[in-house]
Computed example of a mutant assay.
Amino acid sequence: MASPAADDYLKTVYAHTEWQDAPITPSQLAAKLGIAPSSVTEMVKKLAAAGLVSHVPYGAVRLTDAGLARALSMVRRHRLIETWLVREFGYAWDEVHDEAEVLEHTISDRLLEGIDERLGRPRFDPHGDAIPDAAGAVERVPFVLLAEAPIGHTGHVLRVDDRDPELLRALEASGLGVGHPVAVTAAGVTIDGASAALPEGAADVVWISA
């Protein structure tokens, strides 16, 4: 199943459980990919037949070892390209996702390795997502979703979901970015020690260190 569509499915299944534990359902997969549920059902059957996912009717979709290895390879491509676009071409963090979605399917392994070397083997992309190394190893640190962090919790921003460019721009305008220290208070949050007004929905797309 060497196809960009299959790679997108596997990458989406992986990403769903990267920052929380519940496996993805076919309906969630359809929503994330913007595809009709019937089309997802057919593709999941093909992926299962190829040994890339495990799935029972109406149940969750999980990656097999082979599926995980392929998903990590695509995630590595996507996140290295995002990092490359920001560092080398001046893209903003809200501009790189869609560009990387296209380029990840077209560049050669040789070019990808050259990008990784030129960037100094980065461990994280501009949104704080871990970049798997060439062997598929991923660095992980304890985290908590900002919406679930109790009052008094302090940490630094580990990751911001990159799906909504408008929200990314609003977060940047509020002063929040990957690596910034955050404290949860009764009144909201402080960033770098100063009170900040985060845009609506921010707490559901920001992860901070536990």
Results as ranks from 00 to 15, higher is better:
178 V>T: 14
183 A>F: 00
57 P>E: 11
138 V>R: 06
9 Y>W: 08
176 L>F: 15
34 G>P: 09
40 V>K: 01
73 S>M: 06
10 L>M: 11
44 V>N: 10
104 E>Q: 14
141 V>L: 03
131 I>K: 03
167 L>R: 14
120 G>T: 02
133 D>I: 03
46 K>R: 15
131 I>A: 04
189 V>T: 05
74 M>A: 06
151 I>D: 05
165 P>D: 10
22 A>L: 13
157 V>E: 06
75 V>F: 01
147 A>D: 11
141 V>C: 02
16 H>K: 08
36 A>G: 05
138 V>A: 03
51 G>T: 10
79 R>V: 00
91 Y>E: 09
59 G>C: 09
119 L>A: 05
63 L>N: 07
207 W>Y: 08
57 P>V: 14
82 E>G: 03
176 L>Q: 12
104 E>L: 07
77 R>M: 04
42 E>P: 00
19 W>M: 09
208 I>W: 04
127 H>L: 12
40 V>Y: 02
131 I>D: 04
182 V>L: 08
64 T>Q: 09
105 H>W: 01
100 A>H: 07
107 I>N: 00
20 Q>G: 04
139 E>G: 13
157 V>S: 09
84 W>M: 13
155 G>L: 09
189 V>E: 01
106 T>P: 00
51 G>Q: 11
59 G>K: 04
64 T>V: 10
135 A>G: 05
158 L>S: 09
6 A>V: 10
22 A>P: 01
189 V>Y: 03
89 F>M: 12
48 A>D: 14
9 Y>F: 15
160 V>S: 05
99 E>I: 11
50 A>W: 12
209 S>D: 05
63 L>H: 07
138 V>N: 05
203 A>E: 11
91 Y>K: 13
14 Y>P: 02
133 D>K: 02
82 E>F: 03
127 H>C: 06
90 G>C: 11
16 H>Q: 04
180 H>S: 14
13 V>P: 09
140 R>W: 01
150 P>V: 06
53 V>Q: 13
26 P>Y: 14
191 I>Y: 07
121 R>F: 12
4 P>Y: 06
183 A>V: 09
74 M>T: 13
198 L>T: 00
59 G>P: 04
84 W>C: 12
128 G>D: 06
7 D>T: 02
55 H>F: 15
4 P>S: 06
52 L>I: 13
51 G>S: 11
32 K>W: 04
65 D>F: 08
154 T>Y: 00
155 G>R: 08
117 E>C: 03
64 T>R: 10
84 W>D: 07
181 P>T: 08
117 E>Y: 11
142 P>N: 10
198 L>E: 00
137 A>H: 13
160 V>K: 09
153 H>Y: 00
209 S>T: 12
175 G>Y: 14
58 Y>V: 12
77 R>H: 01
45 K>F: 10
11 K>L: 15
78 H>M: 03
169 R>K: 15
150 P>Y: 07
111 L>H: 13
11 K>T: 11
171 L>F: 05
172 E>C: 02
135 A>K: 09
88 E>D: 09
38 S>Y: 02
176 L>A: 13
112 L>T: 01
